[in-house]
């Protein structure tokens, strides 16, 4: 396996507030890395920095042999790093198919027919073959999010970044999106998944990073982490997801 992404000593501050502090990790091809942590721990900022949506204050990100920074041609990098956000922002004036073909046609200069064939295949893969002609406002939240996944995949990226993509969905829809991601992981897509769904984090990840207050507190195989967290902070974090009869006072 070869390293496709490596992050070393990454830090980021918003004003006085240090969001990320000395973050280092590697991502190998075909690997799925999950990042968990309390909200506001810097998970989203980390993903956004990899995609150039936030500037890098300190440390380095290497992607496929190049160092990312102020002089990077971000358009060319973003075309290879797909990203899906929490708020499923489809382009509302375009049909589902046109949402997916826009970037391949405009950025990669693919022929419309070729792009549409690719898009139709991807939409079928996320279970939306019958929604090709629909418009975003006719879709449910879960369906929109799956279109957003297909839209990012249409660029045939080397890595996919998922930023809490189930956070604003109700449980049922969240589940269908999680399954889409699990299927994607089966195809050995390289990806980083930021999530707050613990069961899903364990099921999808090859490796897991637990972030707290902008630092990596624990890392390891998800099964080991959930079975026996090594640090007090991780134990406290996981406790929050447990509920017992006695909790009701």
């Amino acid at each position: 396996m070869s390293k496709i992404l490596s992050v070393t000593g990454l830090s980021k501050s918003f004003g006085e507030h240090r969001v990320l502090d000395d973050i280092s990790f590697c991502l190998e091809e075909r690997q799925v890395l999950t990042i968990i942590g309390a909200s506001g721990c810097g998970k989203s900022t980390l993903l956004r920095m990899i995609n150039g949506l936030e500037t890098i204050d300190g440390g380095e990100i290497h992607f496929d042999g190049q160092t990312l920074g102020a002089h990077t041609d971000w358009r060319q990098v973003r075309a290879q790093i797909g990203m899906v956000f929490q708020s499923y922002e489809l382009f509302n004036h375009l049909s589902v198919l046109d949402n997916v073909t826009l970037a391949p046609i405009r950025v990669q200069k693919k022929k419309r027919r070729e792009a549409e064939e690719l898009a139709a295949g991807l939409l079928a893969r996320v279970g939306l073959a019958d929604k090709v002609k629909a418009f975003p406002r006719q879709l449910s939240g879960g369906q929109k999010q799956r279109v957003a996944i297909a839209r990012a995949l249409a660029m045939q990226p080397r890595i996919m970044l998922f930023d809490e993509i189930t956070a604003s969905l109700d449980p049922e829809m969240s589940q269908e999106v999680c399954h889409t991601l699990l299927e994607l992981a089966e195809t050995r897509m390289t990806m980083i998944v930021v999530t707050h769904e613990m069961g899903f984090a364990q099921a999808i990840g090859d490796e897991l990073i637990f972030l707290d207050e902008g630092r990596i507190v624990e890392r390891g195989h998800p099964d080991d982490f959930f079975a026996a967290p090594q640090t007090e902070r991780a134990r406290r974090f996981l406790k929050r997801f447990e509920f017992h009869k006695g909790d009701r006072k």
Binding site: L53, R78, G82, M83, E89, R151
Partner: peptide
Amino acid sequence: LPAHQTQSAQALGLSRMQIYRHVLVPQ
């Protein structure tokens, strides 16, 4: 228009001009 429209388009690798022309202005 929501900032996420621009960011989603940016994340797909569209240029500033393409974002205006194909995403923001039509909407």
